[in-house]
C-alpha cells in the first residue's frame, strides 16, 4: 500500500464526530478607510507618499537601476525587465501596481498579472507600490471576497518592508528584501 493510501486509510479508520463548517459573518471595520490604511502602513514601517513627495524623493536619490511595471511611472524606469530574475540583483527600485489594499492591516494584493517576475518585489532594494484610493477594502474578509475564485499561479499580500527582529528583538528593516516600502495613493 502506498503511503498516500496508508495515511488516508488510517484517517478513515478513526471514529469522528462530524463538525459543521461555520459561515463567516460579514465583519466590518469602523472608520475612514484611507486614514486606517495610512496608519496601518506606517505602523508596519512603510510610508505613504503623494505623487509630489515621490518625485522629491526620487530626485534626491541617484538611483541607477529602476524598473517600473506601472504605465504612468514608466518615465522613471532606467531599464527594461531582464529575462532572468537573477539579473535583478542590483535593482535599486521597483515600482509596481497593486490590485487593492486592506485598511485594517495595510496589506496590498498583487498576483502574477502585476508581477512579471515573482522575485521582483523581494529582490529590489526599495519598493514603491501604486494603489488607488478607490481600491481599499476594510478587512481580510472583504479582501478574500474580492479575490474570490481568481486563478492566479501566485498571489501575494505585502504589508511592509522586509524586516526582522531576530537579534534581541531589535527591529531592523531590510532583512533580505526591500529596505523601504513606499505607497503612492492615487
Amino acid at each position: 500500500m502506498s503511503s498516500r493510501e496508508e495515511i488516508l486509510n488510517s484517517i478513515r479508520g478513526i471514529q469522528k464526530e462530524n463538525k459543521a463548517l461555520p459561515d463567516i459573518p460579514n465583519f466590518q471595520l469602523e472608520g475612514d478607510l484611507v486614514e486606517l490604511f495610512k496608519n496601518a502602513i506606517e505602523a508596519n514601517k512603510g510610508e505613504i507618499l503623494s505623487k509630489k513627495e515621490f518625485e522629491n524623493w526620487i530626485s534626491s536619490n541617484n538611483f541607477q537601476h529602476i524598473i517600473s511595471c506601472s504605465e504612468p511611472f514608466h518615465t522613471y524606469a532606467t531599464q527594461e525587465l531582464p529575462d532572468d530574475a537573477h539579473q535583478l540583483d542590483h535593482l535599486e527600485l521597483a515600482i509596481l501596481e497593486v490590485q487593492f489594499g486592506v485598511a485594517e492591516n495595510g496589506a496590498m494584493w498583487l498576483d502574477d498579472s502585476q508581477l512579471p517576475h515573482r522575485a521582483l518585489p523581494f529582490i529590489t532594494e526599495h519598493l514603491v507600490l501604486i494603489l488607488s484610493k478607490e481600491n481599499l477594502v476594510s478587512n481580510m474578509h472583504q479582501a478574500y471576497d474580492r479575490i474570490g475564485a481568481d486563478h492566479s499561479g501566485f498571489g501575494l499580500f505585502i504589508a511592509g518592508p522586509s524586516k526582522t527582529a531576530d537579534i534581541e528583538q531589535s527591529l531592523v528593516i531590510g532583512a533580505h528584501g526591500p529596505k523601504s516600502l513606499r505607497v503612492i495613493l492615487v
Binding site: 492591516n105 481580510m140 501566485f154 498571489g155 501575494l156 504589508a159 511592509g160 524586516k163
Partner: peptide, 8 residues
C-alpha cells in the same frame, strides 16, 4: 496585524 509577506 499581519506578516509583511503572505504568499499564495
Amino acid at each position: 496585524p499581519i506578516t509583511n509577506y503572505s504568499s499564495h
